[in-house]
Simulated scan of single mutants.
Amino acid sequence: MSYSLQLDIPGANAVLRRAFPGRDQAYFPSVTLVEPGRVHVVLPYHESTLRPGQLISGPTLMGHADTAAYVLILAHIGDQLMAVTSSLVMNFLRGARPGELHAQAEFLRLGRRNAVCDVKLWTESPDRLAAQATVTYAIP
């Protein structure tokens, strides 16, 4: 399926910052890739994301998966900040070691009323996934 982009990397980063103006800028996700049907978003490492056992917490992984899906959708539908999560199914595959948290999101489906995204997350390497999520958004 072919997808057309509405936002490039700087545009996606600007929309993300406008959508979440109160977040700490030192610990803000950065969009590093925007291609038709795919984005890559990196969350800087911060020790506050760790859980006992020195692994990145589940809520951090879930939040980053949701953010990557949101960026993917907005990059393709434009500046429609009221797109909302309607479902997030998370599969934890292995402990995420401390480090930058990477998320690559791709469309499974992009429709007029909803979008379904596949999100892969890792800290060590894309060959060693920490988690995978399927995220559905309702589009206004």
Rank of each mutant, 00 (worst) to 15 (best):
L108T: 13
C117P: 03
V116G: 02
N114Q: 11
R109Y: 15
S87R: 15
T85D: 07
A103P: 04
D118N: 15
E47C: 10
E47L: 10
R113H: 10
G78V: 14
L110E: 01
A69K: 05
E100F: 06
A115V: 05
P59V: 08
D79N: 15
P98L: 06
L88E: 08
H76A: 07
G53K: 11
R112T: 03
K120G: 03
G111N: 10
M82D: 14
F92I: 12
Q80D: 13
R113F: 06
I77P: 00
T60Y: 00
Y70N: 08
S87N: 15
A105Y: 04
D79A: 14
V89A: 14
I77N: 01
I73L: 15
G58M: 03
D118S: 15
F107W: 04
D118W: 02
L93T: 11
K120E: 10
L81D: 12
P52M: 10
C117E: 02
L121K: 07
V116N: 03
A83F: 06
C117M: 06
Q80R: 15
T85C: 09
H102W: 14
T85S: 15
N91C: 06
Y70P: 04
E100P: 05
R97T: 13
R112G: 08
R109N: 12
A105N: 11
V89R: 14
I77R: 06
A75H: 07
S57I: 00
Q54L: 10
G99H: 11
V89M: 11
H64Q: 15
M90F: 03
V116E: 04
L61W: 00
L81K: 09
R113P: 00
L121N: 08
L121M: 06
C117S: 10
L74P: 01
V116P: 00
L55M: 06
C117K: 01
N114V: 02
A115G: 09
I56P: 00
C117A: 11
N91K: 12
V71A: 04
H102F: 12
D79G: 10
L61Q: 08
G95T: 11
L121V: 08
M82Y: 06
Q80A: 15
L81F: 04
P98W: 11
L74S: 02
G99L: 02
A105G: 14
D66Y: 01
R112V: 01
L61D: 02
H64F: 08
Q104I: 09
Q54P: 04
L110N: 03
R113E: 13
R97K: 15
V116M: 08
H102K: 13
E106Y: 00
G99I: 00
I56R: 00
L81I: 13
T85E: 12
G53C: 09
G99W: 12
R51M: 12
G78F: 13
G95D: 12
L50F: 02
L121H: 06
T67M: 04
Y70C: 08
L81G: 09
L121W: 07
I77H: 02
L88Y: 01
A65S: 13
